[in-house]
Design a protein around this nucleic acid. Sequence first.
DNA 1: AGGATACTCGTACAGTGTACGAGTCCAGTC
DNA 2: GACTGGACTCGTACACTGTACGAGTATCCT
Lengths: 207, 207
Amino acid sequence: MSKDPRGNRHAHLNRDSIARAALAVVDRDGSEALSLRKVAAELGVGTMTLYHYVPSREALVADIVALLVVEMDLTISSGLSWRDGAKQVGRSLRAMALRHPRAFALVAAAASDKPPLLDFARRLRDFYVALGAPIEAFVEVWSVLDAFETGFLLLETQAVMRRSTAPHDELDQGTSELADRMPATLSEAAYEEGLEIIVGGLERRLL
Amino acid sequence: MSKDPRGNRHAHLNRDSIARAALAVVDRDGSEALSLRKVAAELGVGTMTLYHYVPSREALVADIVALLVVEMDLTISSGLSWRDGAKQVGRSLRAMALRHPRAFALVAAAASDKPPLLDFARRLRDFYVALGAPIEAFVEVWSVLDAFETGFLLLETQAVMRRSTAPHDELDQGTSELADRMPATLSEAAYEEGLEIIVGGLERRLL
DNA sequence: AGGATACTCGTACAGTGTACGAGTCCAGTC
DNA sequence: GACTGGACTCGTACACTGTACGAGTATCCT
């Protein structure tokens, strides 16, 4: 005599579609606003149903990160140098970050020793090796280059989000010439500059 | 006839001491485990008492970041070059991160347009200018260098925390030669290498 | 037919941030 | 002294979170 708890199957419900719905919530409401109840509502499903596909909230976040990371371009076109390959990866990371500015913080905060990022690191290592870089240098190259990219894009996505919300926070007391000019110039040019400096420097010293 | 609600003043209770207690909680339990109730308990005080000094949890986190950021070394010893000054700042940031590995994520995630980090950015700009760098280059220099440092230290503090907790996660299925070797070599040497590449490169191109 | 299995989800609990308002103390002023 | 107004403390309550438990139903296998 319950209202409507018929055990209907929701054909298109699985780990992947749940992660996709979660990403949609994050893209819309921001990463701190992610909640299992909201994801379930997005899918028109009871909250606890999600637990049949995803073991925990933490795992769901990992799935989101995995979804974002597979978007990266690690294809090897013929005659690609390591130098250009590294820049290609950096640019596709930036493109991903700008497609999902509110979700990027999740990528930056993700544990680098667990499946989503660890798998990516392995793919990246193979990519570099295929481009002729010595394996021994990988950890150093990866940590320096990836650190720059993650840090820069964390700043840039913050700036992007700022622009698309409240036009002016009440706390902007100090006219803040610096804050105003900073995000404005924090653009593609600065990213390319950093990329060039680091890729060039690494090539000269380690490869 | 209430149990003990005497309006005792707690002499040493103020915004600063609250931030300090909150930092202690974060250093001990991790940044996700920070809660107002825990901070209040740490101080032997009712939860709502905190709200007389701090307007919100968000503000409390900002206070913690401010506490960490003032530890940085921006002193100018005589004859200091921009090159060495920039490295000095980078090293003192790393020292701070390693002193508070569980709190560093809060610094990395802090909004760069609000008092704690904005004030630091201003102090840093003055520091660079005093060392002879052109003001126009500041935003570019700052974003590239700071991005590297933040990104690198986010990774390194993660690795440090990993070592001090569960010796082996159940999910380490894949023997993960990469994951094991990565944090080990992600050390001072790699940081110095990155610092040298970037400071050198920036100097050559912009200054 | 009967039973296992897969799936759905209502309810409940501990934990969070914080709004409200009732207390209790102290500094002034009459 | 008595009164008043503010500064301070904090108990209670509410809306929200993640998730444990177990009851319900649908489907497939024998």
